[in-house]
Amino acid sequence: MKSVHPYCFSGVGPLGETLKLFKSEKLVVEYVAEEKTLIVGWKGKVKSEELRNGYDELLELVHRLRPRKWQLDLTKRDKLKKKDQRWIFENFLPKVLRAVNDDVFMAVIVPVIMLNELVSELSGDELMHKGNFLIMQNFMYREEGQRWLNEMEMIKLGANKVS
């Protein structure tokens, strides 16, 4: 895995100025400061060890940035083994919730059929921690996912003002 300097400007993407935080052969992690969104993109066939190493790198970034809005782009990644999918939900996502210590909104950019596979075996407990939730929604396009993330943030901010 090849790490990039944590705040290295990488250019202007469709969502605004994009900071490239991490890049390997299979994983790219970027942050769009204007949108306060972490962009995670996987590609190709990912072995169990590569997956876990990539998510370990990602968790280090999560501890630093505490991002509440995510785009997880799986459109270029091959299908995972069920045990690896389960590992993500049982190990990685609960750690994200603990690190962020707030609700996390994740726009998953993937064909609908793949999302159903990802969440079909979950009880729901994996996506909660101390009253905070990790809420996932499926989208076919990044722009559509970003609109949803921004709406969720506005709803969350509005709810906090009322309480």
Rank of each mutant, 00 (worst) to 15 (best):
K83Q: 09
V96W: 05
L15Q: 10
K23E: 15
V32K: 00
R52L: 04
S24L: 06
Y141H: 13
R68F: 01
N101A: 15
P6S: 09
W87K: 12
E60P: 02
K45A: 07
W70H: 08
Y31M: 02
Q146S: 11
M140W: 00
E30P: 03
G54A: 03
F133E: 09
P14F: 02
I135L: 15
K82G: 09
D125N: 15
L72K: 01
E126S: 13
F9T: 03
G16R: 00
D103L: 04
T18C: 10
K20G: 09
P6H: 09
T18D: 08
R142F: 08
A107T: 00
Q137D: 14
F22H: 13
G13C: 11
L61P: 03
E90F: 11
H63D: 07
L93G: 02
L19P: 01
L21M: 05
V110I: 10
Y31V: 01
K47N: 06
E30D: 08
E60K: 12
Q85R: 14
K130Q: 12
E144R: 04
E121K: 09
F92H: 08
M114Y: 10
S3F: 10
I88N: 12
I135N: 14
K95H: 08
V108M: 14
P14S: 14
F9M: 11
N116Y: 07
L59R: 01
H63L: 08
A159W: 04
E126I: 06
G145N: 06
D102Y: 04
F105D: 08
Q137C: 08
M128E: 11
M1H: 14
Y31E: 04
K26S: 11
K69V: 01
G44A: 03
S10E: 13
E35D: 05
P6W: 10
Y7W: 04
V100H: 05
G41L: 05
L72H: 02
W70D: 05
S3D: 06
E30N: 12
F89V: 03
E49V: 01
C8F: 09
M114W: 10
H5D: 15
L118K: 13
G145K: 08
Q85S: 10
D78I: 00
F89S: 04
M154L: 15
R64L: 06
L27V: 00
Q137M: 15
L97C: 05
L72D: 01
E126L: 13
S123C: 00
K45D: 07
V100E: 05
N160P: 00
D103T: 05
L93W: 10
S163W: 09
A99K: 06
R68N: 03
E49W: 04
K76A: 14
E49I: 03
N91R: 15
E90T: 15
V28M: 05
E121A: 11
E143P: 01
P6K: 04
